[in-house]
Design a protein around this nucleic acid. Structure first.
Lengths: 366, 366
DNA sequence: CTGAAAGCGCTAACAC
DNA sequence: GTGTTAGCGCTTTCAG
């Protein structure tokens, strides 16, 4: 490994000068600069990032906490976050918590402020208290997909109006003429300060409110999705459809369960969208690629990732290492809100069949 | 931020002692150990990983290079790799190269050996030379999904027998009685020392060889998949099916294109598997979750990830930081081969229709 | 068993 | 413009 010192020796200057030319800091004479650059090239010098991190008091990485990168939403987010992070020379360390509090805690404990300059969190519920602690200790933290702009989490965050997303889904179904629908609502966290519907409370409430506002329509049933997966949606949808065969549409608070609901419908002999409409939330890649393509409320994932990284950087700049350890600015933590979600109608939703169409189709079931 | 020194002062010992108790190194008296531990707890001390990295000459991270984490194979691999890495206290830095040589190079240049103790590479083609350079410089590198066990890359690697995978897919189709099939072969890299079919050469050759070995069967057409995506498979399949409507089955060298082929079939009025069988390779999560579920050759992804991480660690131990800069052991680089891929028949493959069934079905097309 | 001292590779004041 | 001098926080010989 070749070090700054070696380069300096080779160029007949002092390490400080080399450092200066490499980072365009102090003014350096054109001649020496040439000599240094030459030596750098010749020796194949590459700065030791860990050493630099120590000296600068700041590491060139962000930690990104996700519940599981296997859930297709997160790779999309991760990709965007990484791109954004790279613009300031930061690397991204992925931390899969698997929705396990201990794992999340362990990551934060080790990484925050020591190997990572800041922390991006997509699933804050489980480690909320730890995040507060980290933040108070002076390491910037940003919650990346806060679901309720109207209810700030008490930490810096980027919020997406998921209540509106739910409302848009409801409106879409209403517009198509659906009056009896079922809802599959995802719930995993049992964190107390969240709605009884867990982390998808806002998505659920937005849907319910809007749908009920239409006098003649009703939400026939709500079923909890045990897991935010295709399988979870499949199981929940089967139950719901069995218990309430008269619904003409299903709303799911996330795309994966919505996709699962489509499969369930298919397996029960219902054709989507003719017999049953299905609408989800997020617009992950797969929603475009499923058959039929999933109607869903698109959420600005990339924008959220970019905003989160930007916010993180601002926090870092605002609280330079000088003030590390200080509680930092005591004002209310900043919140950014992304642009609004938008309904993306695709092939999984259609007007409900008329009564006798339904009768016919019902006969076909099972 | 509380440092080792502060803990030491608080405990009335010297930093060396604190370090010792924290890492169970030098023998420390039970009493002092207690005192130190107490101080650590009281002050909320957390070791500064960047500082430790510098002092130890080794960073607690691995870099994982992937072409794009958005391709669903990689998250699965990443998850497994992260788990394995954690067992030795390593974090994973994800490096999305987007199949761009410059990006890959930039990552390696910066990270390898300075912020990462080792490099895991899933897609070596583009940065092969750089990897060699890195390795020679003394930073361990492992290629994670080498496709041809019989043709070692000249770098440490974990190989999966993809030729066999192709053969298994062929055998499956043969067993079902297919005699006229099409092949969708993925190709992206144009690296010279690879087959004309790019990085999927082994998968293609294995299939072709086995299929042709059955005298009465033939591969009617091979089409190149421009992109290793659902869309790429969709486009290629459409073309192939249009040009060769008589094939009864499609083989794709990866699951995503296979999924796309199923969609293409659906859009062309062909039912899978009745009119057309489709088989892929890998067995990504999505293969299980598609409708119909995709028949595919399962590749031991998790095992590969684990083996890769293990191998990387061995290389690190073998070439301790003392010998950094030395070419290291000059023998031929180690290669590990995972257990064999296995055919997983699911709903997307079936025996071909008999002649008049086909005629009927053909009429339904368009 | 514990302390003292040197140094990992780099940056950052400040002097010359 | 360039060199000098201190560290960053931790590990690690080597003495005591």
């Amino acid at each position: 490994m070749t070090t700054l010192n070696e380069v300096a020796a080779h160029a007949g200057v002092t390490p400080a000068t080399v450092s200066n030319v490499l980072r365009n800091r102090g003014r350096v004479g054109a001649a020496t600069r040439e000599r240094v650059l030459h030596a750098v090239k010749e020796l194949g010098y590459r700065p030791h990032l860990a050493a630099r991190a120590l000296a600068e008091g700041r590491a060139p990485t962000f930690a990104l906490m996700v519940s599981s990168i296997a859930n297709p939403f997160y790779p999309e987010f991760t990709l965007a976050a990484e791109r954004a992070a790279r613009t300031s020379g930061h690397f991204l360390i992925v931390c899969n918590t698997n929705d396990d509090q201990e794992t999340g805690r362990a990551y934060l404990e080790q990484i925050a402020g020591t190997l990572s300059e800041g922390v991006l969190v997509t699933n804050a519920e489980l480690v909320f208290d730890d995040l507060r602690a980290i933040a108070e200790r002076g390491t910037p933290v940003v919650l990346c997909m806060w679901e309720r702009p109207d209810d700030p989490p008490g930490l810096p965050c980027v919020a997406v109006d998921f209540r509106l997303a739910g409302a848009l889904a409801a409106q879409h179904l209403l517009d198509l003429g659906h009056t009896r629908v079922g809802a599959l609502v995802g719930s995993k966290s049992s964190h107390d300060d969240l709605s009884p519907f867990g982390i998808h409370g806002a998505r659920r409430d937005g849907f319910v409110e809007r749908f009920n506002a239409a006098g003649n329509a009703r939400i026939v049933a709500e079923f909890i999705c045990e897991a935010d997966t295709i399988r979870g949606g499949y199981d929940a949808a089967r139950q719901l459809l069995k218990a309430h065969p008269d619904v003409t549409a299903l709303y799911a608070t996330n795309d994966l369960p919505a996709l699962g609901a489509m499969h369930a419908a298919a397996d029960m002999g219902l054709s989507v969208p003719d017999d049953l409409s299905v609408v989800g939330i997020t617009d992950i890649q797969l929603a475009r690629e499923s058959r039929p393509a999933l109607s869903t409320v698109a959420v600005p994932t990339e924008e959220a990732a970019r905003m989160a990284v930007d916010l993180l950087r601002e926090l870092i700049d605002r609280a330079p290492r000088a003030s590390r350890g200080n509680p930092g600015n005591t004002g209310t933590p900043p919140m950014r809100v992304t642009s609004a979600p938008v309904m993306v109608p695709r092939a999984s939703t259609a007007p409900p069949r008329t009564q006798d169409q339904r009768t016919r189709s019902s006969l076909r079931r099972r």
